[in-house]
Computed example of a mutant assay.
Amino acid sequence: MKRYWMLCIAAVMLLPGCNTDTETTETGNIRQAEKDTASIAAGAPEAAAADTILQAVVHLTLTASGNSLEEMRYDQDTLEAKAGALIKLKLINEAEDMTMVHNVVFTAPGKYKMVALAGEQLGASGNYVPDTTTVIASSPIALPGQTVEVEFTAPLKPGNYEFVCTYPEHWRRMHGVFKVK
Results as ranks from 00 to 15, higher is better:
His102Phe: 05
Asn93Ser: 07
Val58Phe: 15
Ala33Lys: 13
Thr78Glu: 13
Thr134Lys: 01
Asp75Met: 09
Ser138Glu: 09
Thr61Phe: 12
Asn67Gln: 04
Pro130Phe: 03
Gly145Ile: 08
Met114Glu: 14
Arg31Glu: 11
His59Gln: 13
Lys35Tyr: 13
Thr52Asn: 14
Val104Arg: 05
Ala44Asn: 09
Ser68Gln: 00
Glu120Cys: 03
Gln55Tyr: 13
Val105Leu: 05
Val105Arg: 03
Gly119Gln: 04
Ala95Thr: 10
Pro144Glu: 10
His102Pro: 00
Ala108Tyr: 08
Glu34Asn: 04
Ser138His: 11
Gly84Glu: 14
Asp75Ala: 05
Asp75Gln: 07
Met72Glu: 09
Ile40Ser: 01
Ala108Asn: 07
Glu46Tyr: 06
Lys90Asp: 14
Ala41Asp: 09
Asn29Gln: 11
Lys90Val: 15
Met72Thr: 07
Asp77Val: 03
Lys90Pro: 00
Leu122Phe: 12
Glu70Ser: 00
Thr132Pro: 00
His59Val: 12
Gly119Ile: 07
Ser65Pro: 02
Ser65His: 01
Asn67Ile: 07
Glu34His: 02
Val115Thr: 11
Met98Ser: 11
Gly126Cys: 04
Ala41Phe: 02
Ala137Gly: 10
Ala42Ile: 04
Thr52His: 12
Asn103Leu: 11
Glu96Trp: 00
Val58Gln: 14
Gly43Glu: 15
Tyr112Pro: 03
Ile141Gly: 01
Ser65Phe: 05
Met114Gly: 01
Ala124Leu: 10
Ala48Lys: 15
Thr133His: 05
Ala64Ser: 13
Met72Leu: 10
Gln32Thr: 08
Ala44Gly: 06
Asp131Lys: 15
Tyr128Met: 00
His102Glu: 03
Ser65Gly: 03
Thr134Leu: 06
Tyr128Cys: 00
Val115Ile: 15
Leu62Ile: 04
Ala116His: 10
Ile87Glu: 00
Asp51Val: 07
Asp97Val: 05
Thr25Gln: 09
Val104Tyr: 11
Asp131Leu: 08
Pro130Arg: 00
Gly110Thr: 01
Leu89Tyr: 10
Gly28Thr: 08
Gly66Val: 00
Ala116Asn: 08
Ser139Thr: 06
Ile141Lys: 01
Lys90Cys: 11
Lys113Trp: 10
Thr78Gln: 13
Asp51Arg: 10
His59Ser: 12
Ser138Gln: 09
Ala124Asn: 06
Thr63Arg: 13
Thr52Asp: 15
Glu96Asp: 12
Tyr74Gly: 02
Gln55Asp: 12
Leu79Gln: 11
Ser139Gln: 09
Glu70Gln: 01
Thr37Lys: 03
